[in-house]
């Protein structure tokens, strides 16, 4: 079937199989390999992207369901060469090790900061409940999100 959607600001018209999941569409057809597949059961969040501004596990959505939507992946989060505060925060606070869960963590955290710009430590931990990291013990991920909350641009 034919789908029309916007991915990282770029209009896309694509032919997909009915059963194609959004994550495989992004990875295999568009070459956007930042969203990762790690669990097959929507449990780990490594595939998280934004669909119409909301964090979504892209292994849980058919590509067809994103027809007509605005999709943002980790590749589209920075503004040109300016990293998003969360990307900076993860680097500043050593919020990643192997990097495999990182795109999903950042996209989930971006959704959190969009709705709650100054979350408490507990709010951050609860928001990350759907994302698994096996390297960091989450300590530095929490710090990275706190760093980003402090350094994000104040809305005009």
């Amino acid at each position: 079937m034919q789908i029309n959607l916007t991915v990282n600001g770029k209009a896309r018209a694509s032919e997909v199989e009915d059963r194609t999941l959004l994550v495989y569409y992004l990875r295999e057809q568009l070459g956007l390999t930042g969203a990762h597949v790690a669990c097959d059961t929507s449990s780990c969040g490594a595939c998280t992207v934004h669909v119409d501004g909301v964090a979504v596990k892209s292994c849980t959505l058919l590509a067809a369901q994103a027809d007509g939507c605005q999709v943002t992946t980790i590749e589209g989060l920075a503004s040109g060469n300016d990293l998003h505060p969360l990307q900076q925060g993860f680097k500043e606070c050593h919020g990643l090790q192997c990097g495999f869960c990182t795109p999903g963590m950042i996209m989930t955290a971006a959704d959190l900061l969009n709705t709650n710009p100054h979350p408490s430590e507990t709010e951050i931990r609860v928001a990350l409940e759907g994302n698994i990291c096996r390297c960091t013990g989450y300590h530095n991920i929490v710090k990275a999100i706190q760093w980003a909350a402090e350094h994000q641009a104040v809305p005009a």
């Binding site: 930042g34 969203a35 990097g99 990182t102």
Partner: peptide, 17 residues
Amino acid sequence: KRVEDKRFITGKGRYTD
């Protein structure tokens, strides 16, 4: 700060898959 981070935080890590 880690020099390898840039590619991972921008989704440019290159894993086998």
